[in-house]
Design a protein around this nucleic acid. Structure first.
Lengths: 213, 213
DNA sequence: GATTGTTTCATACGAACGTTTGAATGCAGC
DNA sequence: GCTGCATTCAAACGTTCGTATGAAACAATC
């Protein structure tokens, strides 16, 4: 008996999920990559769907916890007029850090490619797992941004928050789109570098004058 | 003989590709949705892979053509100092217009959900099809933005262009993330409305002071 | 109206899928 | 060393997958 069987399965699932998506990653390929028997999947997780949900819970849970801790710190420092850059940092840093974590034994895949992959997956399997993890976190950040930019009407507030999320999600893309765009001169493999570029962009976008009528 | 068989197959493929991804959408479900015989797929397209490539070519080709026409107009008006908003409009409008085109007979699916879906698909089938369609267009826009913002160092230029693309892609997302975020108060189903919100955000982000060292 | 070429159809192929089963294995406590 | 429980294993289940086949249906030419 090795208590690591579940862990090995989760690791392998992450990898193959990121590479082939939920329908393309077969339980056989996952079991083989994990070095465990095929039946172990259903023994430990019950079904393929539950296995995928477990992958979510393991990764997204800690990220959102950390986001909210950082957000609370920013809000506590100045409850009436919170620092916008701090809010954005809380939103972006935790996810980018795990997205750009170098692959390793316990972290076998560029998590960014998994996240973005599953973020856009229409299968209900994935959508449900994702929403469970994200719902309340998103609302907290919209609230906080609204406190920092109280003059924004709600519609514009939601749109711009939405754009911010888009930047983050897109930056986590597994295939290195930025490298392709820049013909290899810019590599997005570092959370701090990405953050340094992203925060001013997002802040300026959020603060843009409301020019449309 | 009905010349529409290929068209019906392409339409159905779009729909099911958007809903279930390239591995999840089976040829049987596609053929059934199209109301044609299963063997018609291999008769008209040769293979599932070729069918998917045909979907790309049909949709992405016209969008990128239109983008470049609009970009050329902006550049022609002021070659030395092109209008940044015009450039952004050329990048965003053509894709948002087809992304938010209401579903119809000839346009059976919210194309946005297909685009975003395939944009993040790691399968080589899709990656190749996508890159073929996008490569040169992307470079033209980076060049143009650089002309409008010549003070930006190339690294920052690429990063910020990358963020712009992220906003666009994310806004095309099929599942209505914005509606969920705003608890139904904001719906992103209209290209003009989205554009009106997006352009000021992107422009401000691109123009943000370069504060990182 | 027979011929030719194109397109549809029902059907079948082997492979791979998610899941299940029941026997083998390892390891506690006694 | 035997018992009881947790885990692993090889094998098989029925289903669905992408693809291939050969006959039927159709259209157009002469």
């Amino acid at each position: 008996m090795q208590p690591e069987t579940k862990t090995r399965l989760l690791n392998a699932t992450e990898l193959l999920l990121a590479q082939h998506g939920p329908t393309g990653a077969s339980l056989r390929s996952i079991a083989e990559a994990a070095g465990v028997n095929l039946a172990a999947v259903n023994y430990h997780f019950g079904s393929k769907e539950s296995l995928i949900h477990a992958v979510f819970a393991r990764r997204l849970g800690p990220v959102n916890e950390r986001r909210l801790v950082m957000l609370d710190e920013v809000l506590a420092a100045n409850p009436e007029n919170p620092d916008l850059r701090g809010i954005l940092r809380a939103l972006v840093l935790p996810i980018l850090e795990i997205a750009f974590l170098p692959p390793s034994e316990s972290n076998p895949v560029q998590l960014g490619s998994l996240m973005i992959r599953l973020y856009t997956e229409p299968a209900k399997v994935v959508e449900r797992g994702f929403n469970e993890q994200m719902a309340c976190t998103a609302n907290r950040f919209v609230e906080a941004i609204h406190k920092a930019l109280p003059h924004l009407d709600p519609g514009t507030l939601y749109w711009r928050t939405h754009f911010c999320v888009g930047c983050v999600v897109h930056t986590m893309h597994g295939r290195n789109i930025l490298a392709a765009l820049s013909k290899g001169t810019v590599i997005s493999d570092n959370a701090e570098k990405a953050l340094e570029q992203m925060i001013p962009f997002l802040e300026a976008g959020l603060r843009a004058g409301v020019t449309h009528e």
